[in-house]
Structure formats: C-alpha cells, structure tokens
C-alpha cells in the first residue's frame, strides 16, 4: 500500500519554482529518508505534503486520500529551531499538544490524554523531565519532546524535519530505536536528513532531491555513485535559469 503519493508536485516562492515536478510513491511501513544538499527543497517538500505551503501544480495523496480527510493520521515533528523554546510551558504541556484535535476544541485535557502523554514521554526516556520548563532542556532533549508530542498523537504517518541535527548520541540512539519500533508497528516515517554518511544505515527507502527529484526507491537502488553525484553535483543550469526567468517575468508554472 502507498503512504504518500506526490504527482507532478511543483512549489514556487515568488513564482520561482523551488521544487519541480516531484513525482513519487512511498510504501507504507517503511522508514523513508529525504536526502539532498542544502537548499534542495527538502523542508519545502515536507511542508507541501502537509499543506503548509501552497503548491503551484500537481497534487499530494496520503493513504490514497486528500490531506483534509487524513489529517488526524499524520503527525509532524518540526525542526527544533522553528519555535521559541523560551515559551512559558513545561515538557508535559508540549507533549499534551499532541492530543489536541479539532474535535477537542474548547474541551479540557482528559485523564486518558495525560496517560497517553506520559507513555509517549517514557518512550523517549523523558518522563522524569515532565515538569521541567522547556527552555532548560538540551537540544537533544527538546528534539525528544517534539517526538513525544508526535507519538502522543497516535498517528500512522510521521513526518520529521531534521531530527538528527545537533543532538547528542543518547538522543540519536533513542530516535533510531523509536524508528525501528514504529516500523514494526507498520507505521510510516518520513525523515528529512542531510547527512549522506548515516543515511544508508538509518533508512530503507530514499528520495534523492535537488530542486527536482533525482531518484526515489529502496536504498540499495539509490545509493549508487552516479545518482549521488547527480544529486550533489549542483543544480541543473538551464532549470535554474528558467526558474529565474519565471520570477523575473512573474510567470506561472501552468498556463492558466
């Protein structure tokens, strides 16, 4: 079964396409790495999949459905630096956010929610920090709190943006253990990752990205010299020039 399908997905900022015609299908129950050099559009791809940035063409299907119908089954672990950790909240407060849903609007947090959140914290070895103010956590601990929040949601598809950046060895190991547990439970995890060295050990399916999709498939098919060379060998010259032109002339990627 297919977890995420993107069909000719193009995303532009100020008319300049930053992702060109991304087209792939990811299997369920696998750990997928989205790999590419800096500025290759990895985070943008995640955001487009989750509907956080507008797309200029193409579509995304998740579990064969539109995003709006499956939101509850998707969980997001944003980049750690994308929020202000000086916010007045405890670790538990943040993890409980994973239990918020549209149906719970205006309702109080229930006892069951608290139990689920505690369980999620235990899975990332952070239960003893429940009452800690979030600004007092180390980078790795903050990352684990974000992952616990996403676990508390009880989703089927997990989307993580650079969870391994700037974390300590203990956190890295905790995340890797979690990934393999999730795989056993049949969950799909999509991870943006920039380190080619570790990618082969972490993931079993790879999407190679550099503003366009270079390749997608099982890792053994993707980890080939010529494909990696292509992805990391710089942007396509003509493609970037066309992109620049579109920005300059305020041209849309589709005729109408």
């Amino acid at each position: 079964m297919i977890s995420i399908e993107t069909h000719n997905l193009t995303v532009s900022y100020n008319k300049r396409p930053v992702l060109w015609n991304i087209d792939f299908e990811l299997p369920t129950g696998s750990i997928v790495g989205i790999i590419g050099p800096n500025g290759s559009g990895k985070t943008t791809l995640l955001k487009a999949i989750m509907g956080l940035v507008p797309t200029s063409s193409g579509y995304v299907k998740i579990f064969d459905k539109d995003l709006a119908d499956v939101r509850q089954r998707i969980s997001y672990v944003p980049q750690r630096e994308s929020v202000d950790w000086d916010f007045p909240a405890s670790v538990m407060d943040i993890v409980l956010m994973g239990r918020y849903k549209k149906a719970n609007l205006m309702k109080r947090i229930s006892k069951a929610d608290l139990e689920i959140a505690a369980e999620a914290l235990e899975k990332v070895n952070m239960l003893e920090f429940s009452n800690r103010q979030i600004s007092q956590l180390s980078g790795g601990q903050q990352q684990r709190v974000f992952i616990a929040r996403s676990l508390a949601q009880g989703a089927d598809l997990y989307i993580m943006d650079e969870p391994f950046v700037g974390v300590d060895a203990a956190t890295e190991e905790a995340i890797l253990n979690l990934l393999s547990d999730m795989k056993k439970e049949g969950k799909t995890v999509v991870v943006v990752h920039h380190d080619l060295q570790t990618a082969k050990d972490y993931f079993d399916w790879i999407v190679l990205l550099n503003t366009r999709m270079v390749a997608a498939g099982p890792k053994d098919e993707i980890f080939k010299e010529e494909l990696l060379q292509e992805a990391y060998g710089g942007k396509l010259n003509v493609l970037s020039k066309v992109g620049d032109l579109m920005k300059e002339k305020a041209f849309n990627v589709r005729e109408k």
Binding site: K47, M50, G51, L52, A68, R71, Q72, I74, S75, Y76, P78, S82, V83, D84, F87, A89, D93, I94, L96, M97, G98, Y100, K101, K102, L105, M106, I109, R149, Q153, I159
Partner: peptide, 20 residues
C-alpha cells in the same frame, strides 16, 4: 480556547498540520 491559543502562540505550523 485557552489550549488552542497556547498552541498557535507556540507552534502555529503544528496546529495546522493536526487540522486545527
């Protein structure tokens, strides 16, 4: 809307993804 206001003040992108 206390808890929702708290979430959109802390991490609005996450709130969007979970469908709030």
């Amino acid at each position: 809307f206390y808890k929702e206001f708290k979430l959109i003040s802390f991490n609005p992108d996450y709130a969007k993804v979970i469908g709030l």
